[in-house]
Design a protein around this nucleic acid. Structure first.
Lengths: 204, 204
DNA sequence: GCAGTTCTTAACCGCTCGGTTCAAAAATTT
DNA sequence: AAATTTTTGAACCGAGCGGTTAAGAACTGC
């Protein structure tokens, strides 16, 4: 029964353009005009299809989490804790230094700190990052059960350190530091975790 | 010969208020009204005394670097590379989780990513962070000369890892993660660097 | 108490912001 | 081809942006 004029844009494709804009400029640094220009979508269509700026941003984050952070979920499926860590760190470095995408990580660049009226954006991003950390902690808890990690290892601390390093790499990548340099840093982090996980653990 | 109506604010004190606003909300998330309100300075005075928003921000960064990052310079004066690392990491964790200041680090929160017209702000901050990294690398080069670090240690990689971890801690702190949790992460990083620096070094 | 100087208050500037309205245009259905 | 449905482009909101201007208030020196 419906007919109507067809869209001049693909909803998913336009969303991916929006991902890149928010990724590069952050939530507050991105204007509706920036979005309509990059997405090839006119203003009324943007509002009818995606909602508003805030709604669009939420969809952007969801799309980013599903596609651009798939490497994190993949890393979690490695058979041992050490392999999880190694793969996550290396793939993370690769993900924040892609040639055809902005440098860094949308989850951080998107809105590390915002104006008072947009604090919810910053809090939402922070909460989702910490949720990711918890998944790693749970994976390390499993590893302890499986005697893959020493019984006295601290899964929360390990996960936290892992996320701290990945966030640091994202910040560094956003500053333009090249992939090879970040891989050196990741290698040091790996050594740390290797030592923490294999030995009977003598935490400071 | 001068006279004139006296100011109702102290220039330095008002600047410190501005530091906190930019720290909490970032460059683009801060409006002139936010600043005048927090600083207790009216608009024309703000412009005549500090210049404009961009000029004020530069003064804010300078004030922050001199006062709130003094711990980094202090750490560099420790006698050994390991002590430099330990003190920097611990004091950095403390600095990003102060009770009477915003959580995190102004150098990152201030503008990790900006709109196209304010890219210079993000680049300026990124460059100053990398300049700090270079100072640590130089310190480690000195340590190698002094046989305080093994000759095959990579001073640039060590400094990079150190800054990566501190940036990660800043991002984590901005998300509200408490000091004790960050200290656990810092302890793991210390272990890493201790291993890298004392052993003959077997980098991956 | 008057001249000169400096700061404050409040209004104002052009501009862009996020968001909406509306008629014209382009497609589908019958 | 007529009727219907949907998107398009452009004009339009009120509000807030960064920044400026002009008049008056508070001080100093004489």
């Amino acid at each position: 029964m419906p007919g109507g004029r067809p869209r001049t844009f693909d909803e998913e494709e336009a969303l991916e353009r929006a991902v890149e804009v928010f990724w590069r400029q952050g939530y507050e640094g991105t204007s509706i005009t920036d979005l309509t220009t990059a997405m090839g979508v006119n203003k009324p269509s943007l509002y009818s299809v995606y909602g508003g700026k805030a709604d669009l941003f939420r969809r952007v984050i969801a799309h980013y989490a599903e596609h651009d952070m798939a490497y994190a979920r993949a890393a979690l499926e490695e058979p041992t804790a050490l392999l999880v860590v190694q793969r996550f760190l290396r793939d993370n470095v690769a993900a924040v230094t892609l040639d055809d995408k902005p440098n860094g990580c949308l989850s951080i660049q998107g809105g590390l700190s915002c104006s008072t009226e947009n604090q919810d954006v910053a809090q939402f991003l922070a909460a989702s990052r910490l949720a990711g950390e918890k998944v790693f902690a749970d994976r390390f808890r499993l590893a302890i059960e499986q005697n893959d990690l020493p019984a006295d290892a601290d899964p929360d601390a390990l996960a936290r350190f892992l996320m701290v390093v990945s966030e640091g790499h994202a910040v560094h990548a956003a500053a333009g530091v090249p992939r090879e340099a970040l891989l050196q840093s990741a290698a040091i982090a790996e050594q740390a975790l290797k030592a923490m996980t294999s030995q009977p653990a003598s935490r400071a």
